[in-house]
Design a protein around this nucleic acid. Structure first.
Lengths: 157, 157
DNA sequence: CGTGAAAGAGCGGACTT
DNA sequence: AAGTCCGCTCTTTCACG
């Protein structure tokens, strides 16, 4: 992992449809060399996925909510069951198991408030292991992304 | 926006490097038709970005933190300044302006705890407009993604 | 790491329903 | 208006220098 790799990763995090030729201009390597590096980064799992990002509004999901959830009991099997449920629920875009006041923090999309209310009913009130939850309504998605800073000295070589 | 579009979007959200031919198999349209639909979805902004996702651990970012931030004063110019700063800070992966107990919720990566401490110093203690902040350390990224559910009846046609 | 040829994918036009 | 078929072009891929 050198500066060439880091430049490539930074560019691909912004847009992965760049051609090897475009990359080569900005990186200072031949197109083929860029592609070999990309292949290596994919195989090693440094690049874990390559995805299309949709505009939630364009598919009718105008609301984003961040919910802090506290469970009744933190038994391992309960945690796993809860995690599994989050994985299998498409409305849940992200789910983190955390320390702090809450046990879980999740990011959810909904069409509107009524849609979210339905979700809470199905999900929280109907789930006896959820002690309480606190909802934050997102007014502005200031920055949304999965991009990680990849500057020199990041650790792995 | 019909079921064909929805299938295509669902598949591309999972992996945008599928070829039109692969898509055509699962969608039930000719490769060319798939491509034209993709182009339309890109032009309309339904597909807003196409990106590579890195494994944070593979680039030496082993910690994820979710921070709830309350500002001293919520004047519009202060809000804008804060938002701009979030945009320009690579460690901040996501930033949401929210209702609820806090004003902002941000998701941050760090190499380790010391690295995060440095970040809080530079960012919160040195910023007189930050009244307080509460840190949640992420123990498990159960689900990480930007994928939006795109089922029938989502709204827009 | 760079070069060059072959395979493959994307793109656009013309025609059909 | 949208789908298919068919060419052309650009990209990726791989063997070799």
């Amino acid at each position: 992992m050198d500066d060439f790799d880091r430049k490539i990763l930074t560019l691909l995090q912004e847009n992965n449809r760049r051609t090897a030729e475009q990359l080569s201009d900005q990186v200072g390597l031949s197109p083929a060399a860029c592609q070999k590096r990309i292949k290596r980064l994919r195989d090693k799992g440094v690049i874990s996925r390559e995805i299309a990002v949709l505009s939630p509004a364009a598919v009718g999901r105008r609301l984003t909510l961040i919910v802090e959830i506290t469970l009744e009991r933190e038994r391992p099997e309960m945690l796993d069951a809860f995690k599994r449920k989050m994985m299998n629920t498409p409305e849940v875009m992200q789910c983190y198991y955390v320390t702090g006041n809450a046990d879980f923090i999740i990011i959810v999309t909904a069409r509107d408030m009524k849609d979210y209310e339905d979700f809470t009913r199905r999900f929280f009130f109907q789930n006896s292991n959820v002690r309480r939850f606190h909802t934050n309504v997102v007014m502005d998605c200031v920055k949304v992304g999965l991009a990680v800073p990849v500057e020199t000295g990041s650790g792995e070589e």
